[in-house]
Write a protein that binds this DNA or RNA. Structure first.
Lengths: 328, 328
DNA sequence: TTGTACGCGTTATCAG
DNA sequence: CTGATAACGCGTACAA
């Protein structure tokens, strides 16, 4: 591993000159430059990014932290960020937070202590006030969910509107007994979707019924149990609003085909090939990722510029077939 | 951002003592230790990982580079690596390579120049000889595909056996005209699967027919075109072997339901919910990720230990319904 | 145009 | 057990 000094010694110049050549400083004689470049090639010189970052305090990488890389929604956000960052010659470092809120701080702090140029987080924790210490040294952007106990740039979907849209659409198809299926109800995204669901019902003169809300649907057993319970209800539902993609996949799997109408929150690969093809609320993770990445760079380039902190993105309904299943 | 010196000054000790406390060096008086710990808490001291890594040369992070994070196969590998690394208190930095072989080197070199403890790569490039320069400073493990022009630890699936298994299974269901659908034919994984396909045919006394091989199936149009061509053949196929998950999703989408029997290489979410549910060759990405991560740490802990370089993992056939579609 | 001195935050060495 | 000093590789400030 050749260092700058090695190159300098071999080229008969000072380390500083090598540095200048590498950073395209114009104040170098063309002949000196080409000579040094020659030696750099010979020695296969690669600058130690660590030393550069350490010295300058400015890193050329941004971090992305998401609850679960395997979730196509978060994967798509990450890829979009990577695309934007790469255009700028910036590397993207992705990390999995997992679903344990208690670990979030350790993981994020380990990322931050690498002195990244910026950080994009889809949080799982319940408190982010401890991040204040980092906010003036590292631009931070939250996606999917806003932070708790901290004011920061946020790009989130209009979950309430999405919940409303889905439910309203099912009501439009004549349904009045509509079940709500969720994973955890701890996160604000879920509670907002639930609120939208309730608003649509109330607006249509339907009394929300807590018996129709099934939470903690996150694996095959819990889904089977929830579906069985719902179908066994005396006044059983004719439709289901599944509030996240993972639950949607599970519900579609557990439900006898064409038994109930279904609308899911969050599109996923293959949703359009199912029988019946699943009607969904689309979140456009690609857009979220691009916005978040651009915001990070905007904060890097213009630290003082004043910008609206919170951006709520519209969601749209993609109508396919599952919403048209007839009421039994 | 308090530094070690700040803590040292406030605690009335030297920086080295703070360092010792932080690194649990036993040679510190308990009272000194608790006093320093107190101050560290007061000042919210977080060590600068960058400086530590820079100085010591030892990083506490490993890198993972995959062609596409959104592909559930690679995402699962990455998550498995992360799980193993976290148990060891090591952070995982994930990066997207994209499908441009030309960019691979830049991206990997940018990761390596951060002086990671190890690197796990699912390569997309055609030459990796340039990596030799890094191999003695950074343990490297390849997954999914072996490197080209470089000898390194590799955990790959038995692609040839998988291709054979799938084709043999279809032959067992009475098919003799079996099409082979692929994305690129550039990568060794694909050519090995193709070799297995040919071996199964030959072994059954069936002459491989190049007209039945459709390559470059990677988006909706190319898939439509390929399927139309295959179905229009005078002696048209009665079954398809799709050699990767992405092609499988596309083929299943483009094919009229129950028109041809299908077996796909690589399982994916929802494959079991399709109509008919897709029979697949399962690759167990979770196992690959765990193996790769453990190997990295083994190389870190025991640099001199001699280990078998290449590990070929068995694949299995998950029989569902799509292989049973009758011959028309 | 080029070079010298110094420091970023931490750890290794060696002395006390 | 504790501290002073040097060094990791590079960039900044200033001098030549």
């Amino acid at each position: 591993m050749a260092t700058m000094r090695d190159v300098a010694a071999r080229a008969g110049v000072s380390a500083k000159t090598v540095s200048r050549v590498f950073n395209n400083d114009p104040h170098v004689l063309p002949e000196t430059r080409s000579h040094v470049e020659q030696i750099m090639k010979e020695l296969n010189y690669v600058p130690n990014v660590l030393a550069t970052t350490f010295r300058s305090g400015r890193s050329s990488a941004i971090g992305v932290a998401v609850p679960d890389i395997v979730d196509p929604f978060f994967a798509a956000i990450a890829r979009a960020v990577d695309t934007v960052a790469r255009d700028r010659g910036v590397a993207t470092l992705l990390t999995n937070l997992g679903d344990d809120p208690g670990r979030e701080r350790d993981i994020l702090e380990s990322l931050l202590s690498r002195r990244l140029a910026g950080l994009i987080v889809a949080p799982v924790g319940v408190d982010h006030s401890w991040l204040k210490r980092w906010t003036d040294s590292t631009p931070m952007v939250f996606v999917d969910r806003a932070p708790a106990g901290l004011s920061a740039d946020t790009f989130a979907d209009n979950d309430e509107a999405g919940g409303y849209l889905a439910t309203h659409h099912l009501i439009g198809h004549g349904h009045r007994r509509i079940a709500y299926v969720a994973d955890t109800l701890r996160l604000s995204t879920e509670t907002n979707r639930l609120a939208g669901y309730r608003r649509a019902l109330t607006e249509a003169g339907i009394e929300p019924d807590d018996e129709l809300v099934a939470a903690y649907v996150n694996d095959r057993e819990s889904t089977e149990a929830a579906v069985t319970r719902l179908l066994g209800l005396p006044d059983r539902p004719t439709a289901i609003f599944s509030s996240n993609a993972r639950s949607s996949m599970l519900v579609v799997h557990a439900l006898p085909a064409n038994e109930l109408a279904v609308v899911g929150f969050g599109d996923f690969p293959m949703a359009d090939i199912l029988h019946p093809a699943l009607t969904v609320i689309d979140q456009d993770p690609d857009q979220i990722g691009r916005f978040a990445a651009n915001r990070v760079f905007e904060r890097v380039d213009h630290p003082k510029r004043r910008l609206r902190r919170t951006t709520i993105l519209d969601v749209t309904l993609i109508e396919r077939e599952s919403c048209k299943v007839a009421r039994h």
